[in-house]
């Protein structure tokens, strides 16, 4: 796999991939997390995290990166119990779950895949296609001698 991240090391990417495969192992039609190559877009998922959250995530992924795969899967299984647990352990597991599941889920269902992946994306397998009709407003803006209207005008001339 091509290492494209400027924010995560190879070990951290390996950790992220293990977590991703634990959550999304594939089912024949849905590809596995690692197979679809969405991890190549990891930076887009984490670049706007607050600095301290990003640092914690990197530490965690680095540790998972050197664990055997079954340990990572056990960690994910444990984290999934977090919402139903009370006390400090429950708090820790819920943070773990939100952090790990949040990143891999965003990537897996991003619609973005690796440069070598040729199969359908997970979104395509689900049949998720959405759109908003804009032909009329695009045409109106194109004809306008005043330039784009509405919110576009609000953004012109920003410092």
């Amino acid at each position: 796999m091509k290492h494209t991240s400027k924010l995560l090391s190879s070990t951290q990417i390996r950790g992220l991939t293990k977590v991703g495969d634990a959550y999304f192992p594939g089912d024949g039609e849905l590809p596995s997390f690692s197979r679809c190559g969405c991890v190549e877009h990891a930076d887009a998922a984490i670049e706007l995290l607050p600095a301290d959250d990003l640092a914690s995530l990197k530490t965690l992924l680095g540790a998972i990166g050197i664990m055997p795969g079954f340990v990572a899967t056990s960690l994910v299984r444990l984290a999934e119990h977090g919402p139903r647990m009370n006390g400090p352990l429950g708090v820790g597991l819920r943070f773990l779950r939100l952090g790990l599941k949040g990143v891999v889920t965003s990537l897996y269902y991003s619609g973005e895949v690796g440069h070598n992946y040729k199969g359908p994306t997970p979104l395509e397998v689900l049949g998720y296609h959405v759109k908003v009709y804009t032909a009329d407003v695009d045409e109106r803006d194109a004809k306008s001698t005043q330039g784009p209207s509405g919110s576009i005008a609000a953004c012109r001339g920003l410092k």
Partner: peptide
């Protein structure tokens, strides 16, 4: 928060 913020107990 880059997508989401969470409560103190992450509930």
């Amino acid at each position: 928060g880059g997508g989401i913020e969470v409560s103190k107990d992450a509930r």
